[in-house]
Design a protein around this nucleic acid. Sequence first.
DNA 1: ACTCCTTTTCACAGATTTGTGAAATCTCTG
DNA 2: CAGAGATTTCACAAATCTGTGAAAAGGAGT
Lengths: 152, 152
Amino acid sequence: MDDDAVAAFIEGFALSLTEAGMQRMASRMFGALLVADDGRLTAKEVADQLKVSPAAVSGAVSYLTQTKLITRVREPGDRVDHYSVGEQPWFETLMARTDSIEKMVDWMRKGSAALPQGSPAQVRMDETREFFEYLQAEMPRIIDRWRESKHA
Amino acid sequence: MDDDAVAAFIEGFALSLTEAGMQRMASRMFGALLVADDGRLTAKEVADQLKVSPAAVSGAVSYLTQTKLITRVREPGDRVDHYSVGEQPWFETLMARTDSIEKMVDWMRKGSAALPQGSPAQVRMDETREFFEYLQAEMPRIIDRWRESKHA
DNA sequence: ACTCCTTTTCACAGATTTGTGAAATCTCTG
DNA sequence: CAGAGATTTCACAAATCTGTGAAAAGGAGT
């Protein structure tokens, strides 16, 4: 277990998540959870490991729980919260999250309506929208196929 | 052709692209191109339509061309550049762009190596990496399937 | 080579985001 | 319900991001 390499992973991985649009602190905390042996840490452990204030962790927690990437768990008779990458693999959660796509699709519907009937721009936009709708619908099936391919 | 609604589309659509990680100005310019009848505009047209400076457009152009979402076109005997959402549907370009995933996969490989052999964290990380590799490999096939489903 | 226009670069100002410390709030436990 | 510790909130400072204006660089036609 190479601690330096693990720390490097957290920072590097978090950076690529950040580039993909996730908040910086949330990305780092998420990285820390991924390398935690049981995928669970307390706020304090996160704060210590990343050398940040409890306040920063609190912000990350609220982001990550809202986006359902982690869940808050408290054992009965425990006084501290544990945060955990859920039982369901987090990337499935990530893939299932399509609100961003949905928003785009909604806008494209409105956009298409505002364009001249049959114009190239309208045709292009409708086609694009159909693709995203297809993609959204396919997502669960893609995950299924992956599960199958694993068994083979 | 409802100009106000078109403008609203540009802003709304651009916002959802921005939330997905794209630069603000680039998102707006991209939106403007999407509703342009032939999918092509000059820098000046973009600047006028979005009410921004040429410098801002220049920045957006450099982002969008780097990410291959638009291409620069200049007709022989013309003095100005036209920017165009490419011939290939832009969302196919978008889906084919996997560098972000590749970066994550690379980091996960390193992360796995740094974790104790056979530890839950390592198992989890390897599985995650395999999923993304699968996803990346599947992408072209997903697009193919969409094309087929369109013919039906 | 010159001129005109387009495009890029750069320093800067304004806006936004990020993380901190301190205070407030919450929640178990006794 | 009081105490102890955990968590959240808030105002603020530092860092980052955005877009501007002005100047520089680039290119096509004369």
